[in-house]
Simulated assay, not measured.
Amino acid sequence: MSASVQTSVITPPQVLAAKGRTPLVCLTAYTTPTAKLVDRHCEMVLVGDSVGMVLHGLPDTLGVSLDMMSMHGKAVRRGLEHALMVVDMPFGSYEESPQQAFRNAARLITETGCEAVKLEGGEAMAETIRFLTRRGIPVMAHVGLTPQAVNAFGGYGVQGRGADSERIRGDAIAVTEAGAFSVVLEKIPDPLARRITADIAIPTIGIGASAACDGQILVTDDLLGQFGDFLPKFVRRYADLGAQAEAAIAAYAKDVRARQFPGPEHVFGDTPAGKPKREIG
């Protein structure tokens, strides 16, 4: 399955069927222009709660609201024609009960037009995932390092090392059995990611995991060099647009202060160009 030749929106069953085949490509988007850029190159586009840090300057994802996810989801929807659109459920919108999760997931789907939602958590969220999928809401799960649990973890460290590997593996099995159509594996050791990918029947989407995963996801602003607050080890920068943008802005500021912009070609005269003023008399 290749998004570059797709003529219709990719569906969760198609993603599920891609298990063990050509790796799935997934990137984040929060705006219409970015959605248009990534659409044809990706099987899935995630409207991630990372938007809180990348666009809103929050220190973590915990302050992201349903209203924010809905707003950015609507913007991304306008830019997609092919990729499957997944929207993150923010912290506090699904943990209380399966019923709460259904209400808020249904809201995101109806307001944004997304094809699926993503929620964090493994075995503890299996009942909720089962509740949603049995009611027609496709779910992408997320185990390993789950950023919404940063306070419980005490930071953003690697998960699943040593004896802790069985906890992560158990989480991946639980979300699979609950009906998730795919699962993000974040910041876990390569051998564990390989083992989970081989053990479960749904595609694994790695971020800081292993090239053996069934797909990969990165924050688009990270790979483009547009978000410079920090650079995780698992990110490869394919461009440095942030530095290029800053250089362009500095050049503009210099020209303005030197009265070199705007130039004659950027301003308007009393008469339209090419049309001399008509003389009377």
Rank of each mutant, 00 (worst) to 15 (best):
M125F: 03
M85C: 13
C114F: 12
R103G: 11
L80A: 11
A126I: 07
V117A: 13
M85Y: 05
R103P: 10
L108R: 11
R135E: 03
I109P: 08
G79D: 13
E120M: 02
A116E: 03
T133S: 07
D88L: 11
E111A: 10
V117N: 10
C114E: 07
G122Q: 01
E123N: 12
G122R: 00
A105Q: 04
R103T: 15
A116P: 00
A116H: 00
M140G: 04
E120R: 02
P138I: 08
P98V: 01
F102A: 11
R134I: 15
A101M: 04
E111V: 10
R103N: 14
M125Y: 04
R103I: 15
K118S: 06
E111C: 07
F131T: 08
D88C: 12
Y94K: 02
A105C: 09
A116T: 03
V86H: 07
V86E: 09
T112P: 10
I129S: 05
M140H: 03
I129V: 15
E115G: 09
V87C: 13
V139S: 01
M85F: 04
E95A: 03
E115W: 00
T112H: 05
E95H: 07
F102H: 14
E81A: 15
Q99F: 06
L119W: 00
I129Y: 07
I129P: 08
K118R: 08
R134S: 15
A83R: 05
T110C: 10
A106Q: 14
Q99D: 14
V117L: 12
S93W: 02
E111N: 06
E96M: 12
L80M: 13
R135D: 02
M89E: 02
E96N: 06
G92W: 01
L80N: 11
P138M: 11
A106Y: 05
E95N: 09
M125I: 14
F102T: 03
A106M: 14
C114I: 11
R107Q: 09
A83S: 14
T110G: 14
T133Y: 00
F102P: 01
E81L: 15
I109V: 15
Y94R: 03
I137T: 03
T128S: 06
G136D: 13
S97F: 01
V87H: 04
T110Q: 13
S97T: 11
T110R: 14
A83D: 15
E123M: 13
R103D: 15
F91L: 14
M125A: 12
T128F: 00
V86S: 04
K118F: 07
E111P: 05
R135P: 01
V86L: 10
L84V: 06
K118G: 05
I137E: 00
A106H: 10
V139L: 01
D88H: 09
I137M: 08
R107S: 09
G121Q: 01
E123S: 09
I109Q: 12
T128V: 04
E96Y: 05
R107E: 05
F102G: 02
F131C: 12
E123K: 12
P138K: 06
S97W: 01
A106W: 07
R130W: 06
S93F: 04
R130N: 10
V87P: 02
V117G: 10
E81R: 15
T112Q: 05
L84H: 05
L132T: 01
P138V: 13
A101Y: 00
E96T: 11
D88I: 09
F102S: 02
